[in-house]
Write a protein that binds this DNA or RNA. Structure first.
Length: 510
RNA sequence: GCCGCGUUGGUCAAUCGGCUAAGACGCCUCCCUUUCACGGAGGAAUGACGGGUUCGACUCCCGUACGCGGUACCA
């Protein structure tokens, strides 16, 4: 094969929320394309009109945008191979299907859904629980192979509903080299005569993926492992259509499994175990049911993407935190693992934590703003940024800033006095009274001067510094939590700190 | 049932025939800190099984078991 521009595609069907496995497929596509200065195409696989969900397409694009995985060509931005929505390409597929029929690689089938159902129940046995429409069965069914030419022509002429099926050869070996799995081989007699063109004139995935990958000059095709069993159908189609030389290289990605037990991770597992599975919140327009997304759960897109990249890939060095640019530079298919990976939400949180730790405080303040707004609190951005910087090392999510720093925005109304009462005495009350007066006179209310005055006074009054710190903390925050006390005091400022000492004193001595 | 793919600690995983089997998450202990974290130092915990091939197998081959995927006019 000669040098040609790398072109990859992600082809979701707009039927609902975007699963994290889908995002990972996009990511691998994207990384591969960018690494090779290639194109990343977004194609909408909307050939099943019964499953079409309005809004899903826009939602998917919004997810990709959030992740920073924008397509070079898509229904939204267009491109040289438009249209990118398969429903809008409908006439194209029939042409190729008919071409296959003429060449003897496919045939018309007139069986009704009821007749297919009948065939399946009739042929169903203990050893063969799912009978196929294959080389053996097709002779007994109503199609252009079992019927005479005249009968077929007549049926076609009076507009009998029909599909076009691929005629799988009887006993041929089909093999290819998967970029991840290596040599993979199938015998054609184990695969059925897949429908290529449905009765409504729409192609099935099998036909559409081949035709569009060809027409859109796709060079590398990445998809989930669940597609591996139908690969021989696609391989044969490339051959029968005469495009074998242009067939993309396949890479079947390992599945993302549920954390407990086995099997593919599904939306239901997330609901059941309390973590998101979709990239963003998704509301089913029919039922109104809301499924939570990573974005709304407080994940930073960079962390989400990084986490997904490590689910099935690593560069062998042990490094786990990668920027998008590093991922693009280092990604390689031969380091993608073959086996599925169980999703670990704890590890996902750790990734987010890492990104939170390294995030700019002003950025965190901006992201936290909506939370404050929701609580009816207004605060200066710089103030919020300072707080974010103070508490972020104990947060997994942006929203946690509230849990670890709420007292910066509202003075305590209750105090954990039981934590100080046992060791409390009049000297300590005196200390805080005196210290409050000292603070009043401080011209520089900085961390260093506040702390120094605290320690100086404690020493002169002969009280252990350590025994005063917890009470002070509780005066400022109401409980045993928060960043270092003097940092809290400095951030709160002179007035508020003194105020809280007085209120706290009252509560403790009450 | 049949076909395909897979199988290293609880989880993600390195190892491409030399292993005293990395690292990370989580868990536990200790230090730091009279909050909680962060940080630091330790710890417990792994090659499904049986045959080959080989001087030597976690690594290669075969079989078995187990798991997963597929077996739709869904993708």
């Amino acid at each position: 094969m000669q040098q040609q521009k790398v072109r990859v595609r992600f082809a979701p069907s707009p039927t609902g929320g975007l699963h994290l496995g889908g995002v990972r497929t996009v990511l691998f596509n994207y990384l591969f394309a960018k690494q090779h200065n290639g194109d990343f195409v977004l194609r909408i696989e909307d050939t099943d009109q019964t499953r079409y969900v309005p809004g899903a397409e826009e939602y998917i694009m919004e997810c990709l945008k959030w992740c920073g995985l924008n397509a070079d060509e898509s229904p939204l931005v267009g491109g040289p191979y438009a249209p990118y929505r398969q429903s809008e390409r409908k006439p194209i597929y029939r042409e190729y299907a008919e071409q296959l029929v003429k060449a003897g690689y496919a045939y018309y089938a007139f069986d009704t859904p009821e007749e297919l159902e009948e065939m399946r129940t009739r042929l169903k046995t203990e050893e063969n629980p799912s009978p196929q429409y294959n080389h053996a069965a097709r002779a007994q069914m109503k199609n252009s192979i079992s019927l005479s030419e005249a009968e077929t022509a007549a049926l076609l002429k009076n507009g009998t509903r029909h599909v076009i099926r691929i005629k799988m050869p009887d006993n041929e070996e089909v093999s290819f080299t998967d970029l991840i799995r290596g040599h993979v081989q199938f015998n054609t007699s184990t695969v059925d005569d897949k429908v290529l063109l449905k009765a409504d004139g729409m192609p099935t995935y099998h036909l559409a993926v081949v035709v569009d990958d060809y027409l859109m000059k796709i060079t590398h095709a990445f998809r989930g492992e669940e597609w591996l069993p139908s690969a021989p159908v696609h391989l044969l189609l490339w051959k029968y259509l005469g495009w074998e030389a242009d067939m993309p290289q396949w890479a079947h990605l390992p599945l993302i499994l549920k954390p407990d037990g086995n099997g593919k991770l599904s939306k239901r597992d997330g609901d059941r175990l309390g973590f998101p599975v979709y990239a963003m919140n998704w509301t089913d327009p029919k039922t109104g049911d809301l499924t939570k997304g990573f974005r709304e759960n407080g994940f930073l897109p960079e962390a989400f993407v990084n986490m997904l990249a490590m689910l099935g890939w690593n560069d062998g060095s042990g490094q786990e935190i990668f920027s998008m640019d590093e991922l693009i530079a280092r990604f390689s298919l031969d380091r993608v693992s073959k086996s599925g990976a169980k999703f670990d939400y704890e590890k996902a949180k750790w990734f987010n934590h890492q990104y939170l730790l390294n995030a700019d405080n002003n950025k965190l303040a901006t992201l936290f703003e909506p939370v404050l707004k929701e609580k009816g609190i207004t605060a200066a951005p710089e103030y919020v940024a300072t707080i974010a910087g103070l508490v972020k090392d104990r947060c997994d999510f942006v929203n946690d800033i509230w849990n670890h720093g709420f007292f910066f925005f509202q003075a305590p109304e209750t105090w954990d006095v039981t934590a100080v009462k046992p060791k409390w005495n009049a000297d300590k009350t005196q200390f805080f009274m005196d210290w409050a007066s000292v603070l009043e006179t401080l011209s520089d209310f900085s961390l260093a001067s506040v702390e120094e005055s605290f320690k100086t006074l404690a020493t002169s009054m002969n009280i252990k510094v350590g025994e005063l710190q917890l009470p002070f903390r509780i005066m400022l925050t109401g409980g045993k939590f928060g960043p270092p006390v003097f940092n809290i005091a400095e951030t709160l400022g002179k007035h508020e700190t003194i105020q809280r000492i007085m209120n706290g004193l009252k509560a403790i001595n009450a």
